[in-house]
Amino acid sequence: MGAYAVIAVLGIWQGLLIATQLPKFRHPVERLRLKVFPAWPVFRGRLTTLIIYYRDLGEDGTPEPWKELSLDHHRGWFSTIWNPESWRVASVKAMLVTLAILVENPEGRKKPLEEYHRYKAVEYYIRQQTREPGSRRRQFRILRSWGHIPIRSRKEVFVSQPFPL
């Protein structure tokens, strides 16, 4: 009896796994974030790199120079085996990518950008970076780069309004 129950569950799961490859059924699965119904869109779309800069503004509004938030991770031979830093980089990149999608598709926005969680998440993370003495506010900007061989020049994606520290 147990074996037939296992087969029945696997059969239903298999059917749903195939069905959820169709865009029509994909959307509800993505909303539920169910990883038991995977999709395999590996390395799709424009493979660019997002870079984030931030700067502090003094009491009188004078800005400090832009500083790049380091998203480099060591790529020596040992990193092929062990590279925990790659998880931090992947986490920050994931935040930037989701914000960039929101910025670049204004028609899909239902409220001001600053009210979206994706924006608040990036703002919170940037807020945690070391502060210049005497600074009161901070802002960040996101640029799109075309990788190791720059086949195009960098493009600005977004510059935030200054926010209090």
Partner: peptide
């Protein structure tokens, strides 16, 4: 994965292998 790639203009252009290795991260 191949079906997703076939829907993608960057894969269909034949350049995506370069784009993957050119990716900054």
């Amino acid at each position: 994965s191949a079906l997703w790639k076939l829907q993608d203009k960057y894969w269909r252009s034949g350049e995506q292998i370069f784009n993957v290795y050119n990716n900054g991260s």
